[in-house]
């Protein structure tokens, strides 16, 4: 079982995440004038949101812990050493093969599309997207992905460029 599914750790980490985003929000909002309650400046509302995020984050992070504390359970689970050990358990070789690699392939495919469209054109960009991100599936095979990519590239040009008239380059410029 993926240790992240443990509700305790899930809540703790999401609470921390909300606190971090809240802190960044507060820092960024304080760059702008606050104004008064009558004439609010650009920073007023975001600052309030940042504080709200921190409050909610602390609540989310500590609520489950407090519950366990009240029930007399050990919360030593949240010591940095323990967290590190848990993280190491998550990021094992199995996890890399199953989670990180597929996510990375999808990501590289999408980035390739974004990067290539302007220079190589829609045909090449779609082909790259399909072949790279398609390889993320454990049953992927070149013999399927190449024709699929080529077919989708032609279809995409037909629908988006000719059909809808979107101003996208088709071929390398």
């Amino acid at each position: 079982m993926n240790p992240l599914f443990l509700p305790k750790l899930q809540d703790f980490l999401s609470g921390v995440l909300f606190c971090v985003v809240g802190a960044v929000t507060i820092a960024a909002a304080s760059q702008h004038p606050l104004g008064t309650a009558m004439r609010m400046g650009a920073g007023y509302f975001p600052l309030f949101l940042g504080v709200l995020l921190v409050v909610f984050g602390v609540t989310v992070a500590t609520r489950t812990m407090l519950k366990h504390l009240r029930q007399g359970q050990n919360i030593g689970d949240f010591s940095p050493a323990r967290l590190l050990r848990t993280l190491r358990r998550i990021v094992d070789r199995e996890a890399v093969r199953k989670i990180v690699l597929p996510a990375a392939l999808v990501g590289v495919g999408v980035l390739a599309f974004a990067g290539l469209l302007g220079s190589v054109g829609l045909l090449g960009a779609i082909l790259a997207l399909v072949v790279i991100s398609g390889a993320a599936h454990h049953e992927a095979s070149w013999r399927e992905l190449l024709p699929l990519g080529a077919g989708l590239a032609v279809f995409g040009v037909g629908v988006f460029v000719w059909g809808l008239g979107l101003p996208l380059p088709v071929l390398p410029t």
């Binding site: 999808v106 495919g109 999408v110 980035l111 599309f113 974004a114 990067g115 469209l117 302007g118 829609l122 779609i126 997207l129 399909v130 991100s133 398609g134 599936h137 049953e139 992927a140 399927e144 992905l145 699929l148 990519g149 989708l152 995409g156 988006f160 979107l166 101003p167 996208l168």
Partner: peptide, 27 residues
């Protein structure tokens, strides 16, 4: 699904790109 999700990604990416002709948006 191994063929379906690349199709979804294509429509997704072209759709996003076309809003502002922006590669940044796709990223």
């Amino acid at each position: 699904y191994r063929l379906l999700y690349p199709i979804i990604l294509v429509f997704c990416c072209v759709g996003i790109y076309s809003i502002n002709n922006s590669a940044f948006d796709v990223g």
